[in-house]
Design a protein around this nucleic acid. Structure first.
Lengths: 336, 336
DNA sequence: TTGTAGGCGTTATCAC
DNA sequence: GTGATAACGCCTACAA
């Protein structure tokens, strides 16, 4: 069943059928109805490949995700996919992991398939070295690229992100103003977003006239990070003699690990130790007490990613950078 | 840059270029090398749309997922995508939700794009009524369909699942043999898998000479279910006077909710109340104490889904049903 | 072993 | 408003 069959049954040429399919205005109402009736009756759907060949597009966007099993990213994935689908775009998924090579391979795969646009989820896609971002520039030379929670100033790259620096600063200030003296900042990423969060932590210290202590700024990350590992890492720090009365983290999982640590040490939360997570994921509600966390407005970010991509695909002028403000959601793991 | 450009540069016909690209054996080593060199130098990649049109395939499988934000399904998504990609297949994603209509729409979208095969993730895709499975049969009439954790005997439908009935029975027996008398069975789904789990619970009671109590078999489900809601639901049951010394659940989230309930009531876990989850997701490690849970071998299931799909696509004869056995992973939420 | 030519199903550009 | 017809870029008999 192809366009010729339809044209024959409707007694018109394939050009007319094509016009009807593409809502061309140059078709009389009568023929249009007749053709539509035939299409309906035959259950005809235009061949997507042929259409793709002609239009050089199959209405598809590529979603690049380091790890779709991550609670935060999987939530983003859902928002993005639903958003694009509701606007007639299908989504091709690639779980690339964090390695540069694999990410570049993912981009190439999408490019080879002539995807209309690309969304890169999470700040891991932006390298600190310019050389490492070559693949990104290259991708953007072919199609619009939207960076969810990433920042990279480049033609045809659109950045949608949350003000992590400020959010982290506000969270730290909240802890300090609540009487905490020594905040352990626990982070899992050294990329763009990771650096900004760390800077926010430093901002907060400075704003309160405190000087930073290197020992209180700790990086911890594993390929398959588990709550238990995080707990054990904190127990090690404790065994080394490090003292702190609050833990501020760059991810909820780290925060949950801190709660576990407190329990293992017999510390009361938030009495002896205040804990703040990041992302406001469903993990926050699983821990006991529930985790205070930074809500970085994922749904709004994703909606904006979709809108930006659609705009770019329509050739409209879109902002290169859109920044949302985060909220601190206070729960049982902090005082007040 | 197309196949003509390459043929010209290499001084051969497009047929020869095509043969080289498709690894046809009927090409001399010399020309093959020459053509490959040109292709390499030009950075040529065959147009995917044209190729799709000719072969009626773009090496793509559709992944239908009720909700990619679900921890269990997002993990499955990652396994499946990586598996297919490593075998040269790209994955198109559709987050359909649980509504029949939306699922059917998802199937249609995939069909219209001429996806090579379809994986439906989770038992929600199989309806209890035969009429509701029409869309499934129809999908299978066009392409192989693999059901992850679903069961539906039908030509061209391949079911890969875990023996939920037996797993649930063993979990319940474990609780009974540990001295528990009244196990509350809390479940969130009434579909095929849900029914089987419930039956497993009943099997266990019967095997220990106990008669079931309707009040101890409770259904609870919300669109966006949260741990807190589950806790409150159990508090309600408690307020109604229902008594139980163990909670067996059909999903980890429900189990975590039960832990929350215990804490709210001041009950000790597992002293006063034993709790068992299902899926062995990362939620298990977040709760305190950690949740005993049924490990239903997701990775193995997904690997098998991929292998089955690939086999079916190659026209090999594949088993219609593959069943894996689950494991009970014992943690702090149960005695012993 | 290699080349020629027709087909895949659309869209788009012309005439009429 | 409608109809031929040439792209689009590849695959694949069939011929040489």
């Amino acid at each position: 069943m192809n366009i010729y069959d339809i044209s024959r049954r409707a007694g018109v040429s394939i050009a007319t059928v094509s016009r009807v399919l593409n809502c061309s205005p140059h078709v009389s109402q009568k023929t249009k109805e007749r053709v539509l009736a035939v299409i309906e009756e035959a259950g005809y759907v235009p061949n997507a490949f042929a259409r793709g060949l002609g239009l050089n597009s199959m209405q598809t966007v590529g979603l690049l995700c380091p790890n779709a099993a991550d609670p935060y990213l999987s939530q983003a994935l859902t928002y993005l996919e639903r958003g694009f689908r509701s606007h007639g775009y299908d989504c091709l998924l690639a779980c690339t992991g964090k390695e540069l090579e694999a990410r570049a391979a993912g981009v190439k795969a999408m490019k080879d398939r002539h995807v209309d646009g690309l969304v890169m989820m999470g700040s891991t896609f932006v390298e600190t070295s310019e050389r490492g971002n070559h693949y990104l520039r290259q991708a953007a030379s072919t199609m619009p690229v939207v960076l969810l929670n990433g920042h990279y100033p480049c033609e045809n790259v659109y950045c949608v992100l949350c003000d992590d620096r400020r959010a982290t600063a506000e969270a730290a200030q909240f802890l300090l103003d609540g009487g905490r003296k020594r905040i352990l900042y626990l982070y899992h990423s050294r990329n763009f977003s990771g650096k900004h969060k760390l800077q926010g932590y430093l901002d907060a210290l400075e704003s309160r006239g405190l000087s930073p202590d290197e020992r209180l700024m700790r990086y911890y990350s594993e390929d398959k990070m588990s709550v238990v590992q995080v707990r054990d890492f904190l127990l090690e720090l404790d065994a080394e003699g490090l003292r702190f009365d609050a833990v501020l983290t760059s991810e909820d999982l780290l925060g949950v690990g801190a709660v576990k640590y407190a329990r293992a040490k017999g510390l009361s939360v938030p009495g002896d130790l205040s804990i703040v997570g990041y992302n406001n994921s469903h993990l926050c509600l699983c821990s006991e007490p529930e985790l205070t966390s930074v809500d970085n407005k994922l749904q709004a970010l994703c909606a904006h990613c979709v809108a930006t991509m659609l705009g770019a695909l329509q050739g409209r002028v879109m902002p290169q950078l859109t920044v949302f403000a985060a909220d601190l959601v206070r729960r049982g793991s902090t005082l007040g």
